[in-house]
Design a protein around this nucleic acid. Structure first.
Length: 590
RNA sequence: GGGGGUGUAGUUCAGUUGGUUAGAACGCCUGCCUGUCACGCAGGAGGCCGCGAGUUCGAGUCUCGUCACUCCCGCCA
């Protein structure tokens, strides 16, 4: 009890009848009957109807008060008559008959409705984020976020993890994204970098004999945004364990994710152990390394079916070394011609020449491609994708990388079109056995395909004996409903293997020392084998809150251009600051 | 850096094949109203149709450019 409230706006009920109370909150709604005024007073805990009679000295004041003003209402709790109770409100059986009303802070005309959840322009919502955050849905998302993070923290600590903070102002580390730089005043011309992840620090903590480390870690990357990728900054459940193998990491984090997802959602959740899909298989079956397993469609390689088929377009492609991919669309033979045409248009809009298809109906193959093929080819296709009556099958042919990418799109599109996505379920899987190296598309040179911290499978033996492109890494991702939640690895903790790994990617020992100086040194003093992962907190919450966009689960997000419209960030630096930092601007020509 | 979508009142949206004075709902203002809870009734204000060119007798509508927001690709675990 203090000056402002004896109760909050959500707790009064029939037990409080006849009590003198005082409550404070925002004016959510007013209903003015001339001689009688209803005010819905709102705080975080609920809404209470306050009645203001015409003989109340504050009547005129409140009648003219703008919505979202903050007031304190003192009065008596009355039971509402049966015909005036509101079953939609927890406080709907009572009301507060106002006596004294104090305006604590009045509001200007609000730029968008707070009491109603309509679609306001995102630009306005971000500019007036404090108003937006009052609105029911997003307000609850932020509370939801807090609960989930609390729960994650408890579970990690219960599992024996130690929470440790690592520096924000640090040095550039070689994760691969662009760094945010912070100029140093004490060292003119030098810069701190914000961590892209606490990667190096968590490995150093392993070397420091912290057996199990975790942190709800802020990460900063200067890369372009997506709906599921905040520009600038985001949070990871960063964890690392000493003396572990890949399966130990899996066994540790699987129950945490399973429990979080079952506690905070009504959907059914994959039970541990989550299935493991090899990277290579995932690319082949789903065209992506983050497959949505709610989608039952799979991709088949139909290249052989079109060899010497008489269908010139694909045959020419095959001669160039391009594959043909096939995806069965079950029970779509009855779809009108327009449906197929529309998919064809969609394919063109996505940069393809078209989207071929064959319809299998009444034991006959139909459609433009079918007419070009002989029965033998058609039968091989039927067997390949297991065509049943009334199914159709779609074909993608392009240069391999494009074909794989586009077939993933087609797989999603068809699932969407035929409404095959399994509902009310979170489907987890591990993607494992990522390749250690890949060919850089631009330079045509061998480079690390993930980060260079991972241990190659087979260790030094693989590095010396195998074709680099055949070497797998102890590198894994966890994927849920097509969203990549995290990636992790068993790390490379041995200098000689590291030297060799870098040598293969074309980096000298000097470069290794330059980029990994701290780890390179530390590995000389007894580094335990270790590994870990870092699930994205924002993405987990986005999935659980069933939101399509990260901004809906972040209190103060930036827009897609990485601007904070409310704080007006980024902004110019004052001449004074620049001078002190020894920085002269070099404006880019547009 | 590239591609798609959107841009009309404070907000959500409608606006025909290019054709009078650009509409509706919510919000706002004024008045009325003692039982509403999406209160009701009557009246009213509010528009550089994102911006700039162009085509046309005539542009919210067509063309080009540009800006903003958003989604995607590139980039990024």
């Amino acid at each position: 009890m203090n000056f402002y409230r004896s109760h909050n706006c959500g707790e009064l009920n029939v037990k409080n009848i006849d009590q003198d109370v005082y409550i404070s909150g925002w004016v959510n709604k007013k209903r003015d009957h001339g001689g009688l005024l209803f005010v819905d007073l709102r705080d975080e805990y609920g809404i209470t109807q306050c009645v203001v009679n015409a003989d109340n000295p504050s009547f005129n004041l409140i009648e003219n008060l703008k919505l979202e003003s903050v007031i304190k209402v003192s009065g008596k709790v009355l039971k509402r008559s049966d015909d005036t109770t509101n079953p939609n409100l927890p406080t709907g059986e009572i009301e507060v008959l106002s006596n004294e009303i104090i305006i604590l802070n009045d509001s200007n005309q609000i730029p968008f409705q707070v009491a109603i959840n309509d679609d306001s322009p995102e630009e306005l919502r971000l500019k007036f984020r404090y108003l937006d955050l009052r609105r029911e849905k997003i307000h609850h998302n932020i509370i939801f976020r807090s609960k989930i993070i609390h729960s994650i923290r408890t579970k990690m600590i219960d599992k024996g993890f130690t929470e440790i903070q690592t520096p924000i102002l640090t040095a550039s580390s070689p994760e691969g994204a662009r760094d945010f730089l912070v100029p140093s005043r004490l060292h003119n011309g030098k810069f701190y970098a914000l961590p892209q992840a606490p990667q190096v620090f968590k490995q150093l903590l392993m070397i420091s004999n912290f057996d199990k480390y975790f942190q709800i870690a802020p990460c900063f990357r200067d890369e372009d945004a997506r709906a599921d990728r905040s520009p600038g900054e985001f949070y990871q459940l960063d964890f690392e364990m000493a003396f572990v193998e890949q399966d130990d990491v899996f066994k540790t984090i699987e129950p945490v994710l399973y429990e979080i997802f079952t506690e905070y959602s009504k959907k059914s959740v994959t039970k541990p152990p989550f299935i493991k899909i090899k990277y290579k298989d995932s690319m082949e079956l789903y065209g992506t390394d983050k497959p949505d397993l709610r989608n039952p469609l799979i991709i088949k390689d139909a290249t052989k079916c079109f060899e010497n088929s008489g269908f010139k377009i694909f045959e020419n492609n095959i001669e160039k070394g391009f594959p043909v991919k096939a995806i069965k669309a079950p029970k779509t033979a009855g779809k009108p011609r327009g449906w197929y045409d529309k998919l064809n248009d969609w394919a063109r809009a996505n940069g393809q020449k078209g989207l071929g298809y064959i319809i299998y109906e009444n034991n006959e193959f139909k459609g433009p491609i079918a007419n070009n093929l002989n029965q033998e080819n058609l039968k091989s296709i039927k067997t390949l994708v297991d065509l049943e009556n009334d199914d159709s099958v779609f074909f993608i042919s392009d240069e391999n990388t494009n074909a794989v990418k586009f077939s993933a799109l087609v797989r999603n599109k068809l699932c969407d079109e035929i409404d095959l996505l399994e509902k009310n379920v979170f489907k987890f899987c591990w993607i494992v056995d990522f390749p250690m190296y890949e060919i850089d598309q631009q330079t045509n040179k061998i480079d690390f395909s993930h980060n260079p911290f991972s241990m190659p499978q087979g260790g030094m033996k693989s590095l010396t004996n195998k074709n680099p492109l055949d070497i797998l890494a102890w590198q894994f991702d966890i994927v849920c409903n097509g969203v990549e939640l995290s990636s992790g690895a068993i790390r490379n903790h041995q200098i000689d293997i590291m030297k060799k790994a870098f040598e293969i990617a074309g980096y000298s020992e000097d470069e290794l020392k330059e980029r990994f100086g701290s780890l390179y040194e530390a590995f000389k003093y007894g580094a335990p084998p270790h590994g870990g992962s870092a699930p994205g907190i924002d993405r987990i919450i986005m999935l659980l809150a069933e939101e399509e966009n990260l901004r809906e689960v972040v209190a103060f997000p930036m827009n897609q251009q990485a601007e904070d419209l409310m704080m007006r960030s980024p902004n110019d630096a004052s001449e004074n600051s620049l001078k002190e930092l020894g920085i002269q601007l070099r404006p880019k020509k547009k």
